[in-house]
């Protein structure tokens, strides 16, 4: 039995469903009943029920694309800040894509503290130690562009349904965007004015993430300013 409507705002402890339902993300099971664990919107998909959180920190998951900032080095790689309770570890070989003899080569030439890195989460173990990889094409050290940081809970809105918002942002401005699921977004473009317009648009999306019709408004705004 269901006790909520689809897309209804729920608070922690709210009874969502009982019986033949699967407890998804943002929910928990107690005595055969499913409750919401966070404040967010209930999402009912056939027999599974989850809550899309409207708040919260970024928690790394395998396969996530993230933008990290180097905070420390160790003999075989770097520690990256992921805008999360957990830091990421990037090994030299995972950055350059080959075996590196750290006794012969100085790894300082690849990355320095403060550098931003586009990476993918390769593995998260049960102690939340995060291994990153950045050897794929287009990944690795970020050489230029503008970095914006928003709340990780709002990132899905910047991407949009099947990437629709992202497409609008890129096509109307001519800029290239790299979206880190940890709330960091990189904007690359020649025209500074357009880059600024995209930054403004992203901050607007963050502020009004919950509103519908946002994609059209952003498109109009970018076209007006660009």
């Amino acid at each position: 039995m269901l006790f909520v409507e689809n897309r209804e705002l729920v608070v922690p402890g709210r009874l969502l469903a009982e019986g033949d339902y699967f407890a998804g993300e943002g929910t928990f099971l107690e005595g055969g009943k499913i409750f919401s664990a966070v404040i967010g919107l209930a999402e009912i998909r056939e027999k599974s029920i989850s809550v899309i959180s409207l708040q919260g920190r970024y928690i790394p998951r395998r396969g996530d694309r993230v933008i990290g900032i180097v905070t420390d080095t160790h003999p075989f790689g770097w520690i990256l800040d992921l805008n999360s309770p957990y830091t990421g570890n990037l090994m030299v070989s995972e950055l350059v894509g080959r075996k590196v003899d750290v006794f012969r080569e100085d790894i300082g030439k690849f990355l320095r503290i403060g550098d931003a890195v586009l990476a993918e989460v390769r593995e998260v173990d049960e102690r939340w130690r995060v291994q990153l990889t950045a050897s794929e094409r287009g990944m690795g050290r970020i050489r230029g562009g503008r970095l914006v940081e928003i709340s990780p809970a709002k990132v899905p809105r910047v991407i949009g349904r099947k990437g629709s918002m992202l497409k609008v942002l890129e096509e109307t401005s001519g800029c290239r965007l790299e979206v880190g699921l940890n709330g960091r977004i990189l904007i690359r473009g020649r025209d500074l004015k357009k880059v600024n317009a995209v930054v403004e648009a992203i901050l607007l999306i963050e502020r009004e993430a919950h509103l519908s019709g946002l994609t059209d408004r952003i498109k109009a705004k970018l076209e007006r300013e660009g």
Partner: peptide, 11 residues
């Protein structure tokens, strides 16, 4: 705590 998005059983 709820406003911060911390998962909770109840308030």
């Amino acid at each position: 705590l709820a406003d911060a998005g911390v998962p909770m059983r109840d308030l």
